[in-house]
């Protein structure tokens, strides 16, 4: 984060210094900056320091360890797997949410009676606490008392007893289902707003020219909502990258470490194994990756006007 002083030159466009405005504007922003810096920046610096030390459950070693923790991290296959799981989930869940969300948005973009009620109901899953969402689906996927096995059983015509959350071949689909259920409404409502903003006369003139529905979608609608799409994808990608609550409620990273993500891995290292300095190194690595990606993306797309 930059210090305000550096770019003060553009600040006095409105009313200038003589009325004490230059002090006023810093006065307004100071409390917020102070809180954010003390809760985010200073602890982050501390984290950086700790990541170069040797603090763990067995040793309170505060001497400088150089990049030892980072070397350990580079060779830690569990950490790489958790990163792989995170990115993998992101790459699978995001397109599914996008396609489902788009399909729903297309279904509801034209006027229909009761549309507002449908939309109001459909956005609700998104605002449920992720931990509650996880708990809910843990219940849904319960191998004995959950309705999922029951419903599959109806179609299969026999008793189904899939142990969803403990079977390594079924656990990822279960997590994916939960995540898609929780976040598709986000895509849906943003894309719905995007579609509503598309110039209808363009679509109509294409229809008059005899363009097919698919052609209209790909040549007119999609380019028109591209900025909206970019924002939705960025926000969801960042959310998916830090996924914790849903996984924690469903599997805690299990069975074994099959569903561990970078967030749950860091949590386990920091708060269950108290491998403090190593966890700090992991966290710093995550911050570095994310900050670079985020700032690049924010500068590119429409959020940051």
């Amino acid at each position: 984060m930059s210090v305000p002083r550096a770019t003060a030159a553009v600040s006095e466009q409105w009313v200038g210094g003589p009325f004490g405005d230059s002090r006023f504007k810093y006065f307004l922003i100071a409390p917020a900056l102070f809180i954010m810096l003390s809760i985010a920046l200073f602890p982050l610096i501390n984290l950086l320091v700790v990541s170069f030390q040797g603090i763990s459950i067995i040793a309170e070693n505060k001497s400088f360890h150089g990049i030892l923790n980072y070397q350990r991290l580079a060779g830690d296959s569990r950490m790489w797997k958790s990163l792989l799981h995170t990115v993998g989930l992101l790459l699978v869940a995001l397109p599914i949410e996008l396609i489902f969300g788009m399909a729903m948005a297309l279904l509801f973009v034209d006027k229909m009676r009761g549309r507002q009620i449908f939309v109001a109901l459909l956005v609700l899953p998104m605002v449920i606490a992720p931990i509650v969402a996880g708990a809910t689906w843990r219940l849904m996927f319960d191998n004995q008392f959950g309705p999922i096995n029951q419903i599959i059983g109806w179609f299969a015509g026999r008793d189904v007893t899939i142990v969803w959350l403990a079977d390594s071949s079924f656990v990822w689909p279960a997590i994916l289902a939960t995540e898609v259920w929780h976040s598709t409404p986000f895509m849906f409502i943003i894309l719905l707003a995007g579609l509503a903003g598309v110039d209808r006369s363009q679509i109509e003139s294409a229809q008059i020219d005899g363009a097919s529905a698919a052609r209209i979608f790909f040549k007119i609608i999609l380019p028109a909502i591209r900025p909206v799409l970019a924002v939705a994808i960025l926000i969801r990608a960042l959310d998916l990258f830090r996924i914790f609550d849903i996984i924690w409620a469903l599997t805690r990273g299990g069975p074994g470490t099959v569903t561990e993500t970078i967030s749950t891995f860091t949590f386990v290292k920091a708060f269950e194994q108290f491998d403090t300095s190593f966890a700090a190194a992991v966290a710093i690595t995550v911050v570095l990756i994310l900050t670079a990606v985020t700032i690049y993306a924010l500068r590119r797309i429409e959020i940051a006007r």
């Binding site: 984060m1 930059s2 210090v3 305000p4 550096a6 770019t7 003060a8 553009v10 600040s11 006095e12 466009q13 409105w14 405005d21 504007k25 810093y26 307004l28 922003i29 954010m36 985010a40 982050l44 984290l47 960042l238 990258f241 830090r242 914790f244 970078i262 967030s263 860091t266 949590f267 920091a270 966290a283 995550v286 911050v287 994310l290 900050t291 985020t294 700032i295 924010l298 500068r299 959020i303 940051a304």
Partner: peptide, 22 residues
């Protein structure tokens, strides 16, 4: 007042993007 210019605004927003665990 455009305090801090574009960089400060984006810097503030990017703080929001840091994973809670970190």
């Amino acid at each position: 007042f455009k305090t801090g210019g574009r960089n400060l605004a984006i810097g503030i927003l990017s703080q929001r993007m840091i994973p809670p665990i970190v």
